[in-house]
Simulated assay, not measured.
Amino acid sequence: MTGEGTGGANEVSPAGDTGTSARRTAAGAARTGPAARAGSRPEVGARAGAGVGVGAGDEVGVGVGAGDEVGARAGAAAEAGPGTAAESGPGAAAETGATAEAAAGTGQVGTERAEVVRTRALLDRPGLSAGEREILRVLGRAEDLGSVGSRIVVSLGAAIIEGGLRPGDDLNSVDLARRFHSSRTPVREALAVLEREGLVEIAARKRPRVRRLGIAEVREIYELRAELYGLVSRRIVRHCADGPLDALRTAQADLESAAADGDLERYFWLVVGFRNTEARLAANETVRGVLDSVGIRTLQLRHLSLSLPGRVETSVGDHRRLLKAYVDREADLAAALTRSIVRRGLAALEGSGWNGFSD
């Protein structure tokens, strides 16, 4: 969206330095992942300051300290339980075993089916924009979308990541309460959620506003995304069976179609979907949570990068080669390609003259 920490005390080690924390989070990015939503919710979170050290191979070291939040999504595990055994009696043991074996082949033991069904139902809701769908997916707000607080979170979050609200824009709680026909309490709670996601900044005795990103922080985020997607690609090659790769084949076909039609908006959100599918297939929920968190902070910039001349053509070719590396089981090549895709996006931004959002 090398390492990036997410709080003053949190650090992330560069790739290759197993267990060595190195890079400080950019000031103000105090969250590694969405807030932990435990209890009856299907997400599981670990409330702690954490350093995510990306080391050799598939290893990710998570150091737990004090202060921040790491969202570790467990999909719908709380709802589905381990595997599908709850639906089976003793006579269905063979079927349950086969199901578990198939799930293990994709690295999605037990939770995959329930998560895919739940996510698909969420994303198929009529009347939602692409940004609203992405906010709902990242925050896991499908179950309580009818509440006024969730409506505020989704509406403001989508406006931020789609560019309707620009970095530095004021968020007046009185005006928002009037707009959503609510008291100020749900507005304050919604803004606090968006602050935890790094989309809003709330300073003492100042009006909340859309958070700005400086060029130094953007570079750190892209560096972190490049290394984590390298890990994702290695895990897909090593642990994902051939069948689940069909989801990426379909995604690539859609990318090719959107690129041929010159439909930038559709192409952009299909790229976001391709990346989300990769993170799901890699079956490492801690990494997925971190990618979700830093990814939504930079969606405006990722859109800007793809909108530059020649970028869509380059991007579709890069994803085509990446898919081939997955199919051919070339772990090193896949990791190198995916890191190159992320770094190419940053280079395009820097080449465009963009140097951060400033006051």
Rank of each mutant, 00 (worst) to 15 (best):
P167K: 08
K324V: 10
S352W: 04
L213E: 13
E330V: 01
L245N: 04
A325E: 03
A203I: 09
L291R: 00
E59H: 06
A336Q: 14
L333Q: 13
E195M: 07
L171S: 10
S305V: 02
D242S: 12
R196M: 02
R320L: 08
G63V: 11
E285K: 00
A92P: 04
R207F: 02
A74F: 10
E143F: 02
T286P: 00
L264R: 08
C240E: 07
A114N: 06
T106S: 15
L264M: 05
S358P: 04
S293G: 03
G51A: 10
N284W: 11
S21N: 02
P208C: 10
G53S: 12
Q108E: 14
A72S: 06
A253I: 05
A331E: 11
R118Q: 05
S315M: 14
L281H: 08
E265M: 03
L122K: 12
G39D: 14
V218N: 10
L176K: 10
R275P: 01
L213A: 13
G5L: 12
A203E: 15
R321A: 15
R339I: 01
G164Y: 06
E197L: 14
A102N: 06
D359R: 07
A26S: 09
E256M: 00
G16R: 04
L299N: 08
G127F: 02
D242K: 13
R249P: 00
G110T: 05
A158V: 10
S13H: 04
G273A: 13
E143P: 01
I135H: 04
A204L: 13
L165W: 08
L194I: 09
N355W: 02
L171F: 05
V312R: 09
S307C: 00
T18H: 00
L139R: 14
E79H: 08
L191V: 12
D17V: 05
L156G: 08
V153W: 02
